[in-house]
Design a protein around this nucleic acid. Structure first.
Length: 236
DNA sequence: CGGTTTTGACCCGCGC
DNA sequence: GCGCGGGTCAAAACCG
């Protein structure tokens, strides 16, 4: 187990290119959360998994700024692992998931502050990443790096993360009324997969899981293409 | 017409 | 060994 370390250069580049600091030393300073930052966010996901790729078990959670509240949304395994770290994203009117869901006030607080127009900074996304060693036929097999995060959204399932995906399956998982969708990166030779599902206990919560490493940069974003060379060191 | 989604079948690991 | 459940395949349907 180890701490997740965010590459300073990566942070600097994201900060320069996107105009915000995604993970300011894993502490709680506020930051904007809009479409752009969310896109960068999912790229960071890949970086996170690469950082922890040597671990047999490592998990990180990005969630509310209030650690007490956050704990309610941690799985027992994450809590037990003891590697949880709290990061934050500022809730803002530009955060489409917070708005579309329209549930942040209820979800993280049981008061009426949101309805009365008082701004909060402790709503938004949750992130966890994990690696597991899997035994196969006597030998140890390393599972592809995985990264998952939760978003609050009433009607957006698949986030635009800058990559192109093709759906290859859908499955009803036990004890949930919502199907899980399976996607694969359409880039040739890139075996990255992602799963998208809604939480049974709260269908407003969407869980996106990435598995594997991209062997290329995001392809469907023209405005980013001019900066790709600078990102190549950090994106898969 | 080519790429994507749908959907039932198939595969495989795991627990009993 | 068997059944269950999750993940993947692939043919058909769909769509721009």
């Amino acid at each position: 187990m180890s701490q997740v370390i965010i590459n300073n250069l990566f942070e600097e580049h994201i900060s320069t290119q996107m105009g915000f600091i995604p993970f300011p030393n894993l502490t709680f300073p506020s930051l904007g959360c809009n479409n752009q930052s969310l896109k960068a966010f999912t790229s960071i996901a890949s970086s996170l998994t690469s950082e922890i790729s040597s671990d047999s078990t490592s998990q990180t959670l990005l969630t509310t700024t209030n650690p007490q509240k956050s704990k309610e949304y941690l799985t027992p395994s994450i809590v037990a692992a003891g590697t949880t770290q709290f990061l934050s994203l500022h809730r803002s009117p530009l955060n489409p998931w917070a708005i579309l869901g329209g549930v942040s006030d209820h979800y993280f607080n049981n008061n009426n502050d949101m309805r009365s127009g008082v701004a909060h900074d402790n709503y938004h996304l949750g992130v966890c990443s994990s690696m597991k060693m899997k035994k196969m036929k006597g030998r140890k097999k390393v599972r592809e790096p995985r990264f998952c995060f939760k978003t609050l959204s009433a009607d957006v399932d698949v986030l635009d993360d800058g990559y192109k995906w093709r759906k290859y399956g859908q499955k009803v998982v036990k004890n949930t009324q919502h199907p899980r969708s399976y996607y694969r990166c359409t880039q040739e030779n890139c075996r990255v997969k992602k799963r998208v599902e809604r939480l049974g206990e709260d269908p407003r919560m969407v869980i996106t899981t990435y598995e594997g490493r991209h062997v290329h940069t995001p392809s469907n974003d023209l405005e980013e293409s001019q900066n790709q060379s600078q990102f190549e060191n950090f994106l898969w």
